[in-house]
Design a protein around this nucleic acid. Structure first.
Lengths: 167, 167
DNA sequence: CACTAGGGCTAGGGTTGA
DNA sequence: TTCAACCCTAGCCCTAGT
């Protein structure tokens, strides 16, 4: 009955990664609204994007396998929420500088990406993922990096291949 | 980031219900300012109260089963669906939490929650909710009932409540 | 500006079918 | 049994209206 399970294609996966690289993790709806990715991901919902990213990400880091850690890390309830904007020293790895955000507005930078037949190379995946991770923790010089990535993508992207199975 | 999601505790929930019973639905700021509830709800905003009340209240309209609308819902996907063989039994199954008569203090109960996880009984919830509903439509003798409820609550929930995490 | 009502979104757990 | 895809929903955010 119901769902014949629509598997993710390489194009969709690449679009998702590019979207995350562009807007950051957790901006599923934003990614979906971007005309560039909307074409490829038209049959996916924001929740689908989130789920796929989770699946992709579970493999990357130390093989947690999602079903394992759940029992162990169940009682994780830090809640340092106390009061926002309170400076709480906290051993710093991050913070200290609240920048983040910014959709890195691509004003005029439209980057027309037609669907590419072959998925991006492993290297690109790595780069994109790294960027995503960086953005996740903090801002970094994302503008520079993002621009770089964007450019790389342009050079690597195939001329044009229309492979939109559905939609 | 800053907010790892703050789940509502039973105390907070009870306070919210009591607050609604006392002031009525929609008086979130008022409830929050009441010294009696302020202690418990100090880490909640008026919007939080509103949202929680909404969540608590997505029950009334016979939303019995969770498996029902799903067959007809989404499905804009290019995938064939066979609607026959459905109709489903759909037992009268109660899910409204009211008829659920769990054995309180049944022998052999696991009872793993050390902290006062469930201080209030189902009955109290029912009462509070009823009162809230009554007030929602009409005034009724709110003060009298409210006082009663308040008293009951105190006698029922005060064994030892030291469960104020961080405030 | 402060508050509320309501819609939207995300994170995380749960479910399902191959 | 495993697991990618999908479902459910509590909690939070954004917006409009008052």
């Amino acid at each position: 009955m119901g769902a014949p399970k629509q598997k993710w294609t390489s194009e969709e996966e690449a679009a998702l990664k590019a979207g995350v690289a562009k807007y950051g993790v957790g901006k599923w709806s934003t990614i979906l609204k971007d005309p560039e990715f909307a074409a490829v991901l038209c049959s996916r919902s924001n929740v689908d994007l989130k789920d796929k990213w989770r699946n992709l990400h579970v493999m990357a880091s130390g093989w947690g396998s999602r079903h394992r850690g759940k029992i162990v890390s169940k009682s994780v309830k830090p809640t340092p929420k106390q009061d926002d904007s309170t400076l709480v020293s906290y051993v710093g790895e991050n913070d200290t500088e609240i920048l983040d955000v910014k959709p890195l507005a691509s004003t005029g930078d439209v980057l027309k990406d037609v669907g590419s037949k072959k998925p991006l190379s492993r290297l690109d995946d790595l780069i994109l993922e790294s960027i995503a991770k960086l953005k996740e923790s903090r801002g970094s010089s994302r503008n520079a990096i993002s621009s770089y990535i964007e450019k790389e993508k342009q050079t690597l992207t195939m001329p044009f291949s229309k492979n939109s199975k559905r939609c």
